[in-house]
């Protein structure tokens, strides 16, 4: 579904991503793990169209999408939950969700999407009239995920969903990730919490200083001495 070939991302003259190859198959849940500054978020930003890659090629759903803007890609079913959640702070919860449905105009289906969002996160239903900026960090993460689902993604990119959240909330967010995966949405997940990410995913890539150093199925990675030592603190 997604094929990345020799992707490079640069800020000014500094290369954050140095020619990586990566694939995500239809229905797969894939993790991209690595330390802070390894280039994971830059990769995701290039895939979602927020950054133009400096070199390489991205194919999605049978067509090249390299350098296409985000507003175009989301119409083709490629959505992202950005790092730091990115809720619109002065829009209410309802308005944030409605922004997720911006590309759709079938009223009945949008109503069903709202219902699904509130079923998945009853907390959001309670707070629907509140400005998103007044929600707690965990609630904002729920809102960011619910909003991305309103886009009806076929490929969902998740950037650090556990960042800055309490352990209980992290569990809750990953339960949702699994629930969404069970619905058949393909996902690429960037995480610093390597253990949780690999437990949730089918396959994983390990990134270090802009290159991919390991790629395998998640179970193998979880038991690999290299990963255990570098990312699981053993």
């Amino acid at each position: 579904m997604l094929t990345v070939h020799k992707l490079e991302v640069a800020y000014g003259g500094i290369k954050a991503v140095k020619g990586i190859d990566l694939t995500v198959g239809r229905g797969e849940v894939v993790a991209l793990i690595g330390a802070n500054g390894a280039g994971k978020s830059s990769t995701l930003k290039a895939l979602s169209g927020l950054l133009k890659p400096s070199a390489g090629r991205i194919d999605y759903d049978g067509a090249e999408i390299t350098g296409k803007p985000a507003y175009h890609l989301v119409r083709r079913g490629l959505a992202m939950v950005p790092e730091g959640r990115g809720v619109f702070p002065r829009l209410t919860v309802v308005e944030n969700l409605a922004m997720g449905a911006y590309i759709h105009d079938d009223k009945a289906a949008i109503t069903r999407d709202f219902d699904r969002a509130y079923t998945l996160f009853p907390r959001l239903a309670e707070r629907r009239a509140q400005p998103a900026g007044t929600l707690s960090g965990g609630e904002q993460q729920m809102l960011a995920m619910a909003r991305a689902l309103m886009c009806r993604p076929r490929l969902l990119l998740l950037d650090e969903p556990s960042m800055g959240l309490a352990p209980l909330m992290v569990q809750k967010i990953f339960e949702t990730v699994r629930a969404v995966a069970a619905e058949g949405v393909t996902m690429l997940l960037v995480e610093q919490n390597a253990k949780l990410a690999l437990e949730t995913c089918d396959r994983g890539y390990v990134m270090e200083s802009g290159v991919i150093v390991l790629a395998d199925n998640a179970k193998t990675l979880l038991s690999s001495p290299q990963v255990r030592q570098a990312y699981l603190g053993e």
Partner: peptide
């Protein structure tokens, strides 16, 4: 709504299809 969203976070507004 798209105007307000763009004002508050243009990148994320783009991710929503704006």
């Amino acid at each position: 709504r798209a105007m307000r969203a763009t004002e508050q976070n243009p990148d994320v507004a783009g991710l929503m299809g704006v």
